[in-house]
Computed example of a mutant assay.
Amino acid sequence: MSSSTDPRPGRLVLATRNPHKVTELQAILTAEGLDLELVGADAFPEIPDVKETGVTFAENALLKARTLAHATALPAIADDSGLCVDILGGAPGIFSARWAGRHGDDKANLDLLLAQISDIAVEHRGAYFACAAALALPDGTERVAEGRLTGTLRHTPAGTGGFGYDPVLQPDGETRTCAELTPEEKNAISHRGRAFRALAPVVRDLLG
């Protein structure tokens, strides 16, 4: 049993099986001075994935965090994020991960998106990454923070870093895509970084 002098960090569960997100969030929390052991949902293989039935990023993030906190009796955080394209009325939005029909097929999603806007001039290719980050505690306490990264969609992918739509979004003020940035550069400006940095003080206040 741990005590108030126990040097071990607190344990926090991230509601994802995506190792990229676990690594990315661990770096963000560490940079914010939070001494927490972050584990992904893979540490609890008996818990099924949560169906994302919400109609907003915030609703889906809360669904995932709430379910994992209840199932593990540990504080849980989750995010829901996606790409919102101006000319498509904000789509793919919450459907970003399954835009081409199969969840998590990054290449198919990217290829379909580029095909859909292939004839759109650069001045009309505005888009932004949006993220909602949610914290849920076993006692029912819940908090949400949000972040955005605005930019322009390239006609062709560039860069090998990141994942998802990173190779085609060029952030405002940048000459490179998100996939061409270093992990540190991306974390400093990313929608996920902004959302979780906004959530970090809440995590600190609630978890100590």
Rank of each mutant, 00 (worst) to 15 (best):
I77W: 08
I120L: 02
M1A: 13
D105I: 04
G140Y: 00
W99E: 01
T56R: 11
E146Q: 15
C131G: 12
T182P: 01
I94V: 15
F44V: 07
A58H: 03
E37D: 12
P183Q: 12
A78I: 08
A61T: 01
H20Y: 10
A41T: 08
G104H: 03
Y165G: 04
A61L: 02
V13N: 00
D172A: 14
S81L: 11
D35A: 15
R11S: 04
R197I: 11
P48H: 03
M1R: 14
T67P: 01
L169P: 01
R143H: 15
E46G: 15
K107I: 03
K51L: 10
A65R: 01
R154C: 10
K186C: 10
A158S: 09
G33M: 07
I117S: 05
F163V: 00
T156A: 09
T156R: 09
Y165D: 01
P201S: 11
G82S: 11
D86A: 12
L149A: 12
D106T: 04
A158D: 00
V55Q: 14
H20I: 06
G193C: 13
A133R: 04
L113S: 05
A158T: 01
E46V: 03
L36C: 07
R143T: 12
P183N: 14
L149Y: 02
L110W: 00
P171R: 12
W99I: 03
C178R: 06
Q170Y: 00
S81C: 08
F196W: 05
R17Y: 10
S4W: 11
T182I: 13
Q26L: 07
A121Q: 14
A58Y: 07
A108F: 00
A158Q: 03
A69E: 06
A91V: 04
D86N: 12
A158R: 05
